[in-house]
Amino acid sequence: MTSKHVIAAARTSSIKTRFARRFLRSLLKMKRSNRLGTGSQSNEEIKKRSTHIIKTAAYASMARAVGPRRTWSRSLLFKLRNPRRIQGVSSKRCLVTKENKNKRITRNKMQIISREPPSRADSLRKLVPGGDSMDICSLLEETAHYIKCLDTQVKVMQSIADYYSN
């Protein structure tokens, strides 16, 4: 029992440590690349870009630490892996014919009518990655998991920042 408990504890803690390891690696890599290639752009832009990179790295390493089992991490990994494709799909969606547009609108309306808290569920869908295609049950489940992961992510990032600043 005790050994099992230890193993379980190690496994449950491993998401956090995995995330931390990945995130630190990506930070290191960024540092090296930054040291090599800084020059042409202005300081503000570089800051913005690297902030964005760090943010994306944090989300990506969290999603990878969770693995492909959860829907939100899967969709996040998919988005990160091929952003071009996603953009292409979205631009295609903008060019849909009128019939399809009408169909989509009615479907959205139907969803709004049928779901229990309409606007709130939709805003939750926008927040949770991959939530567009979920029904309300799985959306809530994924939201719970996503909140936990975000929480650990914030904690780890906070501790790293504290350590660095010290």
């Binding site: 902030t51 992510q153 914030v154």
Partner: peptide, 21 residues
Amino acid sequence: YIQSLQRQVEFLSMKLEAVNS
């Protein structure tokens, strides 16, 4: 809460960027 967490991530990545550079 989710929005605040995401904002925190953003803020922390800014902080980390400053520290990291």
